[in-house]
Design a protein around this nucleic acid. Structure first.
Lengths: 166, 166
DNA sequence: CTATACAGTTCAATCATTGAACTAAAGGGA
DNA sequence: TCCCTTTAGTTCAATGATTGAACTGTATAG
């Protein structure tokens, strides 16, 4: 009766969730992005239990999202850093943060704001279309069957329907 | 020893995760978006346990992301639908799906592709700047302190640092 | 010689998840 | 009438995951 693994599902969302879809991982990744990179810093900032942080860091290292690096010898001390895939995840986490900001903002206001270095403006992260650049809404998206579709757990029904529809 | 609640954290990401940050909720929301909206359909598509699906649906209704609607009387049957905040979450989930596609794609290829109805092209969901429209990378984002910043669990260290830095 | 900082490990208690079996309300067919 | 099917759940025992507290080990500072 292990927790169901999403890793083998024929679904990119489920596979992504299998890597970072638990309660703490997104917060850990956000903290690494914000330069909170050491074990005891993460403990202090997040209030996560020590043994659980150990486990989470280990699993994030295993799936390649973060790296463990020595920042000091004598005594040996490690810090954690985002890898390429981890940095690639940051915009997604910012988009989720923006959603939380829209629908569950603390009454005191947003705790963190973001400035786009390239253009210099404070901004909201939004999800947009890679073809035309416009922000996308759920209504404007039509899902179609991809080459890897299959009626396996995670998309048992969905795969069938997409095949039939398109 | 309850699971730590993120709902009171002074952090929009944590508050968002408190609503939909468990293993199954994003998959449920994706399925509702894909018109898999009934209890037994979700059971079949996802392979989630029945009592757990009951709990997840209840908590998603409670936090306002989905709605329960009668689609048939005699006997009364319900289906679940995304609310406004739920539909607003879809692009974020698509962005996470695209990340999974980049870093954990099944060898058979992407199971689902997306077409932007507005422009007619197949596309990758990307996170972009609301000010200039460009896609953003982690390196191009500078976090600054917002009005609601506070040294409370979830951003104990981060809030202090942002105050000091900016 | 003691205190402190850092990065964890170990442990018992509690909570969450799983899968199987069960309930309930109606409709349809023999 | 009786039985089977559909749909949407509930109940239960077993197993895993999470929590918080206490502990370990290495090294520097005073």
């Amino acid at each position: 009766m292990e927790r169901t693994s999403f890793a083998e599902m024929r679904c990119s969302l489920a596979r992504g969730l299998d890597m970072i879809g638990d309660w703490w991982s997104p917060l850990i990744i956000r903290d690494l992005f914000l330069n909170v990179t050491r074990f005891d810093e993460l403990i202090e900032d997040l209030g996560i239990s020590r043994n659980l942080l150990t486990r989470r860091l280990k699993s994030l290292v295993e799936c390649g999202v973060i790296d463990r690096e020595i920042y000091q010898r004598r005594p040996v001390r490690y810090e954690y850093r985002l890898t390429e895939s981890g940095r690639d995840l940051v915009p997604v986490i910012l988009a989720l943060t923006a959603w939380g900001d829209r629908w569950a903002r603390p009454k005191e206001g947003s705790p963190i704001l973001f400035v786009h270095k390239t253009c210099g403006h404070q901004f909201q992260p939004q999800v947009s279309c890679s073809a035309c650049g416009q922000a996308i809404s759920a209504d404007a998206v039509k899902p179609i069957a991809g080459p890897g579709g299959a009626a396996k757990p995670g998309t048992r029904l969905v795969a069938r329907r997409l095949q039939g529809a398109s």
